[in-house]
Structures are given as structure tokens and as C-alpha cells.
């Protein structure tokens, strides 16, 4: 769980914003600035020229098929690099604009490497208290990729994702509690987020069954004590289905979701399509 994100003065970690293509979500960039602001941290923009992509472009028979209408063109390393750099420059300008408005320091790093390795190296350079923000929206089948990041990047205490329907970062901060052990970390992260946003903090409890939910709630109340600024809700699901959990979360219209990877809300192995279809805000994942 997120134990700590280093503040700027500590220089022990940053908010790493990883971008590998032009599909970067503006909501993801806003989330990165919000996290950096909450933790008084810096942003490290990491733009990765995928070596595999460049290698691919050296094949003479390879063509690039346009995502808009299917037209194709020959692909060369020069074209790939030029296009990527142009896109990255535009994205960096946007991120600088967002960071500047929030008075968050920002640095940039351009590398040519395998995306996973580049991320791991960067986190190690900046770490150990980093939060990684993946700017490309996840899809239904992205579970594996997410697991790979969490497994291979050791110096990241949290991972922020956005879905394809992400449209806001303002709204309640919803902590989806499925395991009581995750409570303290979630609370610390939630408190940080609402400190700058002023949004309400909601603890949404999901249990495998009603008894489990009640037990989690009791434990949570004991742990929280007399805290009155936190809303505690049960997400009552007829079945323990990720789709139902995703819908229940969507109905709460959150501005930020904090959840554990591998739970019902963000399953590790299952299809993430329901979450992708319904999630309209960033999600901060813990291991």
C-alpha cells in the first residue's frame, strides 16, 4: 500500500508520469498533478520510445495502419521517432501547463528502451517512494500489463490508472475497502488527496458476503474511532461480480478511487472491461 510518497524536499520519490504514445489521457495528467500537489512532490515525465517499435519500423515490408480510417503508409525509424517526439513535446507542454497552474515542479526524461525496463530504471533513480501514473487508458485486457508493472517496478508505492471513459478528477475520494489490512494506507492516501481538493472522503466497503462486510465495517469503525468527516457506505452487491462492483462505484460519481489491485473492484486476472466501461475518474491502485 502506499506508505509514502516523497515530498519534493525529500528527493526520495516522485510522481512518475509514463507515456509511450499519443493516446495519453488528459485526466491521467490531471491526476498526476493532483497527487503531486497532495504529497508536495515533483513530477517526472517519462517519455519512452519503445525499442521494439523502432525495431519494427526497420522492416521494409511493415506498414503503419492509421487508427482513423485504416489508411496505411510505409514506416521508417525516422518517421516513428519524429512522430513520437512531436507527440511527446505536445504532451509535455500540456503537462507543464497543468503543473505550472498547481505550482508543482516538473522534470522530463526522454528514453529509448523497453517501456517496463525504462519505468523500473526511472523509479529506481527517483525512488523509492514513487507513484507511477500510466497515461494510456487501460482496456479490458490490461490486467496482465498492470500486474507486470506492479511486479517489475519495485520502487513504486502506487499505480494510477485511467479508463477510456475518464472525464473528471473532481468529486468524492472513494476508498474501496475489501481487506481491512489495507485500511490504514488507504486512509493516509485519502487524507492527502482531500487535503488539497477539499472533496469528501468516502469509505466504500465491499465484502464477499453480508457477514464479511459487517465484520469489515466493525473493524473499520474501531480503527477510525470518532472520526466524523469520513462517510462509510456499504456497496451491497447481489453477487460478488466485478461488473456489479464497477457499477456500484460508478454510481457514487467519484473524483478519485483508491482500491487494491486484485480485489473485486480491480481484479488482477479477470476482464477489466466493466471497470473500463464505467470508471470515469482515475484509480489509485495498491498492491
Amino acid at each position: 500500500m502506499i506508505a509514502h510518497v516523497a515530498e519534493a524536499t525529500e528527493a526520495r520519490g516522485r510522481v512518475i508520469v509514463r507515456t509511450t504514445s499519443a493516446r495519453a489521457s488528459d485526466i491521467a495528467m490531471q491526476a498526476a498533478v493532483q497527487i503531486a500537489q497532495a504529497y508536495r512532490s515533483e513530477i517526472e515525465s517519462l517519455y519512452i520510445e519503445d525499442t521494439e517499435l523502432i525495431a519494427l519500423s526497420r522492416f521494409s515490408f511493415v506498414r503503419e495502419i492509421s487508427a482513423f480510417g485504416g489508411k496505411s503508409r510505409p514506416l521508417t525509424p525516422g518517421i516513428v521517432v519524429r512522430d513520437l517526439r512531436n507527440q511527446f513535446a505536445g504532451l509535455q507542454r500540456r503537462l507543464e501547463q497543468l503543473a505550472g497552474a498547481a505550482q508543482v515542479p516538473i522534470r522530463e526524461r526522454f528514453v529509448r528502451d523497453d517501456p517496463l525496463r525504462a519505468l523500473a530504471v526511472t523509479c529506481a533513480d527517483c525512488g523509492p517512494w514513487n507513484v507511477v501514473v500510466l497515461t494510456e487508458p487501460f482496456g479490458g485486457s490490461s490486467g496482465g500489463d498492470i500486474a507486470q508493472v506492479l511486479d517489475n517496478v519495485e520502487d513504486a508505492t502506487g499505480l494510477v490508472l485511467v479508463g477510456p471513459r475518464a472525464s473528471r478528477t473532481q468529486g468524492p475520494v472513494v476508498m474501496v475497502l475489501e481487506d481491512i489490512d489495507a485500511l490504514s494506507g488507504m486512509i493516509r492516501a485519502g487524507d492527502r488527496l482531500i487535503e488539497t481538493s477539499g472533496a469528501p472522503l468516502v469509505l466504500a466497503i465491499i465484502g464477499a458476503d453480508g457477514d464479511t462486510s459487517e465484520w469489515i465495517e466493525q473493524q473499520a469503525r474501531l480503527a477510525l474511532g470518532n472520526r466524523s468527516d469520513l462517510h462509510l457506505v456499504h456497496l451491497a452487491l447481489n453477487h460478488a461480480e466485478p461488473a456489479l462492483a464497477a457499477e456500484a462505484i460508478r454510481r457514487m460519481a467519484p473524483g478519485f478511487v483508491i482500491a487494491r489491485f486484485g480485489g473485486l473492484a480491480v481484479p488482477a486476472a479477470d476482464d477489466l472491461s466493466p471497470l473500463a466501461a464505467g470508471l470515469e475518474c482515475p484509480v489509485l491502485l495498491s498492491r
Binding site: 522492416f59 511493415v62 495502419i65 512522430d83 507527440q87
Partner: peptide, 11 residues
């Protein structure tokens, strides 16, 4: 694979 403006294939 994803390219800057679309997709490409490689062995």
C-alpha cells in the same frame, strides 16, 4: 504494436 498514429505488425 501501437505506432504514433496507428498500428503496425512485426514478427
Amino acid at each position: 504494436l501501437r505506432t504514433p498514429t496507428g498500428f503496425a505488425m512485426a514478427p
